[in-house]
């Protein structure tokens, strides 16, 4: 479905991505793992067309989208929930959701109700301003806002960021539910364990390059992965 080959990206003079290649097939959850600063978010921003200085190919359903402007990429069905959620603070919850379906025209009450049924908390707060929500509620709103645009590929950047464990559980339960409903998802997580748990396949990104890839089951047992990305746990278990 999504096929990225030899993607390079730049911020001014500085090269942020050196060589990123990966594929996402329909119905899969694929995750990118790696340290902070490895280039995961830059990869998503390049796919979404926010970063324009880039080389390499990005194909979506066989079509090259690497030169399209951001809003055209959304209209192809690629929607991103960016790092830090980026809720519109002066718009109400409901207005935030409506903007999510901007390209779908007028959003029906029924469609809003569908989202509210997944995240009932949002219905309680629908008249509140986005900026007044707690972190967990903002994450629900961010995912809901992306869902209402009926994405073919949903890209989630660090959905666990800054959330309490029980909220993280809730968010990840909803991700699993989405996958069951047939959604294709590209996930970025700094919490490698968590990411490997929910995903089918994973790519390891280091210093702007894809260095390793494979089935999550296999990667979880990989010595190298364990020592670098799950190392904290290993140390824990030793103690």
């Amino acid at each position: 479905m999504l096929n990225v080959e030899h993607l390079q990206a730049f911020y001014g003079n500085a090269q942020a991505l050196e060589d990123i290649s990966f594929t996402v097939n329909e119905g899969e959850i694929v995750c990118l793992i790696g340290n902070n600063g490895a280039g995961k978010s830059t990869t998503l921003m390049s796919i979404s067309g926010i970063i324009k200085q880039k080389q390499g190919t990005i194909q979506f359903n066989g079509e090259d989208i690497s030169q399209l402007p951001a809003h055209k990429i959304v209209s192809k069905g690629i929607i991103q929930v960016p790092e830090g959620r980026r809720i519109f603070p002066t718009l109400t919850v409901e207005e935030n959701l409506k903007i999510g379906g901007f390209l779908k025209g007028k959003i029906s009450k029924a469609r809003l109700e569908e989202i509210y049924s997944i995240f009932p908390r949002l219905k309680e707060r629908r008249k509140q301003l986005g900026g007044s929500l707690s972190g967990g509620e903002q994450q629900m709103l961010a995912i809901g806002r992306a869902m209402i645009g009926e994405p073919k590929l949903l890209m989630l950047d660090e959905p666990s960021l800054g959330l309490a464990p029980q909220i993280i559980d809730m968010i990840f339960d909803s991700i699993i539910a989405l996958r069951k409903s047939g959604m294709t998802i590209l996930l970025i997580e700094q919490n490698a364990e968590l990411a490997l748990d929910v995903s089918d396949r994973a790519y390891v990104v280091e210093l702007g390059k894809c260095v390793l890839s494979g089935e999550c089951e296999v990667l979880r047992n990989d010595q190298q992965i364990q020592s670098i990305y799950l190392g904290q746990h290993e140390q824990e278990s030793v103690v």
Binding site: P165, I168, D169, E193, Q232, H233
Partner: peptide
Amino acid sequence: VNDPEVIQAYLGRR
């Protein structure tokens, strides 16, 4: 690093 609460919270759902 041995604090159970840290292990619980920092390591999430493990």
